[in-house]
Simulated scan of single mutants.
Amino acid sequence: MNKTKNTAETILDTAQSIVQEFGFNGFSYAHIAEKVGIRTASIHYYFPNKEDLGEALIARYHRNFISATAQIETETRDSLEKLRKFTLIYSAPVQNYCTCMGVMLATDLATLSGKVQEGLAQLFNANLEWLEQVLDQGRREGHLNFEGAANVQAHQFLASLQGAQLLARSFRDLSRFDMIADGLISALTK
C-alpha cells in the first residue's frame, strides 16, 4: 500500500510539473512514464485515463492550496503579512519559469473534462474567497486601504498575480513577478 501511494504521488508530482511547464494538452502518459521510469500501463493502473489524472491533479492542488492558506492563517494575524505570504505561493512556480497549475489548466479549459473544469473553478473560488476575507479583515482593522468591494479587489489581486506569472515566464525574468507583487502590496497600504 505504501508503494502504491508513493507511485501514485510520484506520477502526480511528475504530471504536475509537466502541466506547469507545457499545459495539460502538452504531454502524454509516455512523457510521464519516461520521467518516472515506469511503463505507461503502470500509470493507467492508477489513473485509467487522462481525465482521471486531471481530476486527481486539480483535487490535490486544491487541497494543497487549502493547506497553504491554513498555514498562513496560523503563522500570522496581520492581513498585510498574509497577503505577502500568499504572493509567495504564486512566486514558487515562477522560480522555474513556470506558472501555477491553475493558470496552465485555464489555458486548456475548452479541452478539459467537465469535472476538471469544475475543480478548477472551485480552486479559483477558494483563492478568491480567502483573499476577500483577508482584504475585508485588513480594511476593517485599518491595515489595508483600497476603494470598492473586497471581492472586486480579490479578483484584481488574483488576476494580477496570475498575469505576473505569465509575464515573468514570457520574459524569463523573475523580477517582473516581484515588481507586480510588490506593487499590489504597496497599493493596499496607501
Score class of each variant (00 low, 15 high):
36 V>K: 00
66 I>D: 08
184 L>Q: 00
79 S>A: 15
135 L>V: 03
11 I>S: 00
70 A>N: 15
114 G>V: 12
23 G>V: 00
189 T>I: 12
63 R>H: 13
154 A>S: 07
31 H>Q: 11
187 A>I: 03
111 T>G: 05
101 M>I: 15
30 A>C: 10
25 N>H: 09
113 S>L: 09
137 Q>D: 14
6 N>D: 13
152 V>K: 11
85 K>L: 05
73 E>W: 01
125 N>A: 15
96 N>D: 07
10 T>D: 05
67 S>W: 06
112 L>H: 00
108 D>C: 08
77 R>T: 11
61 Y>N: 04
25 N>D: 13
114 G>S: 12
53 L>V: 02
50 K>R: 09
175 S>L: 07
5 K>H: 12
166 L>M: 13
122 Q>Y: 14
153 Q>V: 15
120 L>P: 00
61 Y>T: 03
95 Q>P: 05
178 D>G: 10
100 C>L: 08
64 N>I: 07
6 N>Q: 14
130 W>A: 08
138 G>I: 00
22 F>K: 14
43 I>A: 01
165 Q>D: 05
141 E>A: 13
36 V>F: 08
18 I>E: 01
137 Q>V: 09
76 T>P: 02
142 G>C: 04
50 K>G: 09
188 L>F: 09
188 L>P: 01
132 E>N: 06
15 A>S: 13
15 A>Y: 00
109 L>S: 12
24 F>M: 08
56 A>N: 01
5 K>V: 13
107 T>G: 11
57 L>V: 03
3 K>S: 11
122 Q>C: 14
74 T>F: 04
86 F>A: 03
98 C>F: 14
177 F>M: 01
24 F>H: 04
160 S>A: 14
72 I>L: 10
50 K>A: 10
27 F>N: 03
147 E>H: 11
117 Q>R: 09
54 G>S: 01
15 A>E: 00
2 N>Q: 13
96 N>L: 07
67 S>F: 11
66 I>S: 03
10 T>P: 02
22 F>E: 15
26 G>T: 06
88 L>P: 06
156 Q>W: 10
57 L>A: 01
76 T>A: 09
168 A>E: 01
51 E>W: 02
146 F>C: 15
98 C>N: 12
176 R>M: 13
26 G>M: 11
189 T>V: 12
8 A>V: 07
126 A>V: 13
146 F>K: 01
170 S>K: 05
98 C>D: 02
111 T>V: 15
36 V>W: 00
97 Y>G: 06
36 V>E: 00
40 T>Y: 04
42 S>Y: 05
72 I>T: 03
21 E>Y: 11
61 Y>C: 03
105 L>F: 12
83 L>V: 11
70 A>P: 02
184 L>V: 00
93 P>K: 01
60 R>E: 10
97 Y>D: 04
161 L>I: 14
99 T>N: 04
16 Q>G: 07
147 E>W: 10
97 Y>A: 06
183 G>D: 06
178 D>Q: 08
107 T>D: 15
97 Y>S: 06
143 H>R: 04
23 G>A: 11
173 D>N: 12
114 G>P: 04
24 F>T: 06
158 L>F: 07
118 E>W: 08
93 P>E: 05
100 C>Q: 08
115 K>I: 11
149 A>Q: 15
146 F>H: 05
